[in-house]
Design a binder for these strands. Sequence first.
DNA 1: TATGAATGAGAATTCATTCAT
DNA 2: CATGAATGAATTCTCATTCAT
Lengths: 207, 207, 207, 207
Amino acid sequence: MARTTGSEGSRTEEAIRQAAIELIAARGFEATTLRELAGRVGVQPGALYRYFPSKAALLVALLVDHLEFLLDHWTAGQPDTADPAQRLRAFVDFHIRFHTLRRKEVFVANMELRSLAPPDYRRVVGLRRRYEDILTAILADGLRAGRFRLPDARVATFAILAMLTGVGSWYRESGRLAKRELIDMHTQLVMQCVGLQTDAPSKETPR
Amino acid sequence: MARTTGSEGSRTEEAIRQAAIELIAARGFEATTLRELAGRVGVQPGALYRYFPSKAALLVALLVDHLEFLLDHWTAGQPDTADPAQRLRAFVDFHIRFHTLRRKEVFVANMELRSLAPPDYRRVVGLRRRYEDILTAILADGLRAGRFRLPDARVATFAILAMLTGVGSWYRESGRLAKRELIDMHTQLVMQCVGLQTDAPSKETPR
Amino acid sequence: MARTTGSEGSRTEEAIRQAAIELIAARGFEATTLRELAGRVGVQPGALYRYFPSKAALLVALLVDHLEFLLDHWTAGQPDTADPAQRLRAFVDFHIRFHTLRRKEVFVANMELRSLAPPDYRRVVGLRRRYEDILTAILADGLRAGRFRLPDARVATFAILAMLTGVGSWYRESGRLAKRELIDMHTQLVMQCVGLQTDAPSKETPR
Amino acid sequence: MARTTGSEGSRTEEAIRQAAIELIAARGFEATTLRELAGRVGVQPGALYRYFPSKAALLVALLVDHLEFLLDHWTAGQPDTADPAQRLRAFVDFHIRFHTLRRKEVFVANMELRSLAPPDYRRVVGLRRRYEDILTAILADGLRAGRFRLPDARVATFAILAMLTGVGSWYRESGRLAKRELIDMHTQLVMQCVGLQTDAPSKETPR
DNA sequence: TATGAATGAGAATTCATTCAT
DNA sequence: CATGAATGAATTCTCATTCAT
């Protein structure tokens, strides 16, 4: 379904969101001016205020929508198994796909938390926390079942998320690696990280 | 040599650097104003220009010094062994110690690359690259020696650095974990990640 | 004739006028926005332009109508006597009644003259002048007849009008004084002011 | 003593205050722009912020200083008598002198109360109240001594102040009347108003 | 008769930077 | 070595107004 085609207005709003993500990812929130944003969208700066009451509110809308979208998608595509290793595999696959697909949103959501006013910050961090909890639950499950060898489920959550999310900051569609390879590689790394042996071959970095 | 003993001026410069790191870490470079910086240092804004030709130059100085300090310290304390596993252990220890000690500098260096003008950006990224290369070399060594099982030394470098650097964003001196534990945990995670078995015990997350 | 029965439209126009008086009295003309006005009326800002060609024209309409209403009412209820003292008494009564009844209109008419463009200013001041002239004529009559003792009929006009109009700025229906008392008090003050003895009792201010 | 001659800065501040009074008196506070104010002073708009933290604060400073100046001057020149009639005479003289001398400040103080934020409003109204109380005290004295015939000291205070203050809104130095005449006329009006007989001659308005 | 979308001009305010002293 | 005064350019945001529908 998604946003129905709609009037002038809803198309303008979508255009603003798109352009905002692009600009904020490129320059940072503070360094992004509404003038430039309006210019990209092809309207006057004042017109932005029909859609967002302030620059800050625009950022909040972007981040909240992004995180809710992320959570919804995980929920919708959740793996049909209770096996922790299988679930972890699915999580890595999901995370990398999502984070390479919506690279800019992810980048913005990671970089601009500090541009949020305290109440907005709490709201956004709350949503992010729910995503972290998904991974923590998988790791804790695996630990409990004696399948994973880990020092601490929460620390490992942060470690693995940092590792996986980092991908978005250097991966380019046009680069050396196909997305399939990327996922396979990180699956191997994560699996080993939680103490599972993999039979993936080792290969040296080509230069 | 440089700023050692401390005339009035060099003490002021140190104070500016300190305050700048603090402010930029807290608000971001764009959101940090020279007025506020000057206020913290206890001088008028104009006085800052005795020490740095521009706000941008101040950031560059901060980042370059930080990265050179990082590289110097690794070089100075380099482990006295050729064994890849030992070297990797040493790297993790060094990295986490440094990144928890100089948390704010690290945070700024990771967040504010995009605030740099292209030539400065290249310079700083060049330094950072030299640090990454240290880890890549260790991993490639271990691969060549058949000691590590890894998909790709470069990808693993990014993955491990992201994992380790992430620590700085949530670790607090006053938190649940002692620094020793932190290092042990991440050593275990990294060792497993590169395919080495560890004998560290698994423990569940306390609630 | 004019806005009597009330199609949709003429009811809307009345609502606009009402809301405008209220808002302008509260915030001043410049500080009143058409957005807020429209909001109170329950329409979109653009709809106001069906009724008034501009914000400035709205103000003019308000002021002119108010002053014409004032003059019409005096004319309609004019006292049936040539005696200056009687006429003065009637004027005070009329003025205070009108100025407490239509407090907000009066307030706006006194405060917002300077918001008028020169031609509108002249028109409105012309109407106001006709009202002042009513009092001047009474005073001049009384002087000529040797009944009043006054330095100058015009100066006294301004003085008395200022005195009486001032009431509107502090009088509240719900306050300490009934309207009847208010009128009696000011009648006494004005009568004494023009040199007539009154037999009204003096009373001290209660605390 | 007064503001000592002083640096560049204090001269600029004085110039800002002067120009601000002039502009605000002419156009109203809301309609006065900092651009225009700066233009009159001969500086860039931003420079105003060295002297006042906001447009609103500038207005407050103007009003508070004006009212304190008014109160100080009355106190300094207070009449050397306890006789209510004499004191009332002195008050009228003082008030009209002051209100014709500092016409614009007075006008602004009367018109722009509503442009103040609530706390500032309370502060300014508090000062104004202290001035009103001076007149109320004189009237109450005269009443108690049986010298004045008045309905109510507080109501009479408002009435007389309105009458006297109104002068500032039409008096021009260059007009028909000398300031001496103006004061004499209003003294007569006020004296009669409180029920004292005067021996001033009546004269008709020349046309 | 009214709406919804947008404009264009201008508002207050902020900020890096300069420079005479 | 540092200040105090000021600049000039930009920023977010507001608002009266227009107009196709």
